[in-house]
Design a binder for these strands. Structure first.
Length: 567
RNA sequence: UGACCGAUGGUGUAAUGGCAGCACUACAGGUUUUGGUCCUGUCAGUCCAGGUUCGAGUCCUGGUCGGUCAACCA
């Protein structure tokens, strides 16, 4: 038999196993489920997927892949009040975009409603379930508290015949919403609240996005999830920690129903610093206009990250790096940023772009002349070829690349100083022109014609090389600079009487008017590119042919910013 | 003041009774026509108290701290 643990080790590139993989490998060793591994990703179609879901998706599909198993996509659609097809579609799109394939195994809990009904009848006949007429308030009250046992319902000992009749009438629509429920008969004194006769079915006279008006009774999570797992012969049902207390009930239903025993294993959900993950709060940001929509590039949603310029690969490696364990954790958002930089550094072509321009004139360069210079498309990938730039007498440079009175550690352009205009010539600043407000409007320099990049005398060292775009060959673009949405590592850490929105970063979006070299593009939506020395960007779908729009995905690591901020 | 779960550098995550390792961050240096990348190095950790053992991050007991559970949500 295959022994993945040993293979991993002998390959020499082994990553130690997380606790779920350890369980799975032991199950395989014991030939449990004939060595089969089958997982599932079970979203409820009532919202958009976020980076926390991505961890679960990568875990479930990743494990199936690793152990030559299968992973189903199953919608947990048991509550018609909150679910709809739009969410089903967006979720499918996001999972597919992440690079996972559920083959022909797209399932819906609602596909099993008839089976669930039969399961319920089976339990009633077994004397393990009963119809209860108590109101929601009475049920809650009768359940007790975590420290006080509950009280048995007066309807608990109805006869099997009566329960069968009543349950059938529930299905036929003879009762209104909330009038009756079907409950499991377990133990009202259990220390586990979920075992105190939990509700299995409730009456909801609402059409379902898939079953229409066929049903007016719907199973609860507890009476649907484990049963779905079992029907699909899921071997390892991975979910987050808050479901740990549901596990005894999950197991109880499987045992009493005498069906395939899937095993539930819980892991800690992903939390990210400077970010919120709650569906409710994300909805609030959208509805109250703090962001432009669910796919706003500042949102931690999959569609937001996609529009921000993240790649599926970067999210997958991120999910790998965060690990899987049972303790609560808050991942440093810097790890997410690292993951996208690592990926884009290897694959994103480079281009010089100026986002905060100031004009620079080379006084000894002939007017009206243009020459072409060449630069590697990507120094990490020499085979990718070159990009050509037009160079002329006037260029835009980045305002931050010039300082009139530079501190010691600043080694870019300043009066009397030399720098290289990247891939072109070394220039020297001779004069600064200002307007009536004292703002710099023009920097005047001379260039050394012998220092053209690539020429024999070009190896003279200067302290830095700055990027530029020729004024006569510049195309204006909109550039959206995104920063983290919240100022606080924990956005829920607020002053008395305030909520998480008080921690919103007012500078999370800055819109700039910059220049790219004319003749570049058109850019495909979401096309990735590194603006040299500035960061990774992608073309926003808002782009038009006349006016491209770029989103900043991430800055480059910026040691100068650190020095500057230290003063 | 119940049941269950958890606790290893700043943040994550390994070590399965035998040298506390890896990644991110931070810091320092080297290379560099991106203050990027890459390379080298540095700081930094087993919640506490007992016990078992030749040997404990790991096992046992007790505590401390954190989380979860009282929807007809999932």
């Amino acid at each position: 038999m295959e022994k993945p643990a040993e293979n991993e080790k002998t390959k020499g590139n082994s990553r130690s196993l997380n606790f779920i993989e350890q369980i799975i490998e032991e199950d395989i060793r014991n030939n449990k489920n004939e060595g089969r591994v089958h997982t599932r990703f079970p979203p409820e179609p009532n919202g958009y997927l976020h980076i926390g879901h991505a961890k679960s998706i990568c875990l479930n599909f990743g494990i199936a892949e690793k152990y030559n198993g299968l992973c189903n996509l199953r919608f947990d659609d048991t509550n018609p009040l909150t679910e709809n097809v739009e969410f089903v579609d967006s979720i499918k799109e996001d999972v597919r975009w992440l690079g996972y394939d559920w083959g022909d195994r797209l399932y819906f809990a609602s596909d099993y409603f008839e089976r669930f009904y039969e399961f319920a009848v089976f339990l009633i006949k077994k004397g393990k379930a009963y119809v209860c007429d108590l109101t929601p308030g009475q049920i809650a009250e009768g359940r007790g508290t975590p420290t006080r046992p509950g009280r048995e319902s007066p309807y608990r000992n109805r006869s099997v015949e009566e329960n069968l009749r009543l349950f059938s009438q529930m299905r036929e629509g003879m009762y209104g919403n909330g009038e009756k429920v079907l409950r499991a008969k377990i133990d009202m004194a259990s220390p586990n609240m979920h075992m105190r006769d939990p509700v299995m079915y409730r009456i909801i006279h609402t059409d379902h996005h898939r079953t229409g008006n066929k049903w007016c009774i719907y199973p609860t999570y507890d009476f649907a999830h484990g049963q779905s797992d079992s029907i699909e012969k899921i071997t390892h049902s991975l979910c987050t920690l808050e479901f740990e207390v549901h596990r005894p009930l999950y197991d109880w239903f499987i045992k009493e129903l005498e069906i395939f025993p899937s095993r539930q294993i819980e892991f800690a959900r992903l939390e990210l610093s400077y970010t919120i993950m709650s569906k409710r709060k994300l909805l609030q940001l959208v509805e109250e206009g703090y962001v432009m929509g669910w796919d706003d590039p500042r949102m931690p949603t999959i569609c937001g990250l996609r529009r921000r310029g993240f790649t599926p690969e970067s999210i997958r490696t991120f999910s790998e790096k965060v690990g899987v364990a049972k303790r609560d954790n808050i991942i440093d958002v810097a790890l997410l940023e690292h993951s996208i930089r690592e990926d884009l550094n290897k694959r994103a072509p480079r281009m010089m772009t100026v986002i905060n321009p100031v004009k620079l004139v080379i006084t000894n360069y002939p007017e009206g002349e243009t020459e072409e210079v060449e630069a590697p498309l990507n120094p990490e990938m020499p085979e990718a070829g070159e990009r050509k730039y037009n160079f002329s007498r006037e260029v835009y440079i980045e305002r931050e690349d010039f300082m009139e009175e530079p501190p010691g550690k600043f080694f870019r352009l300043a009066p009397g100083r030399e720098v290289r205009l990247k891939y072109a010539y070394i220039i020297k600043c001779e004069e600064v022109v200002k307007n009536e407000y004292g703002e710099i409007t023009e920097i005047r320099c001379v260039y050394d014609p012998e220092t053209r990049s690539g020429s024999s005398k070009s190896n003279r060292k200067v302290k830095s090389a700055i990027h530029w775009v020729s004024v006569d060959h510049a195309k204006p673009v909109e550039i959206r600079l995104f920063d983290r949405l919240f100022n606080k590592e924990d956005p829920d850490d607020t002053e008395e009487g305030k909520d998480f929105k008080s921690n919103i970063n007012p500078e999370s979006l800055k819109v700039m008017e910059g220049y790219i070299p004319s003749g570049t593009g058109p850019f495909k939506p979401l096309e990735k590119i590194q603006f040299e020395r500035l960061g990774y960007f992608c073309a926003d779908p808002d782009s038009t042919r006349e006016k491209p729009v770029f989103n900043r995905t991430a800055t480059l690591k910026d040691t100068w910013a650190k020095i500057k901020n230290k003063g």
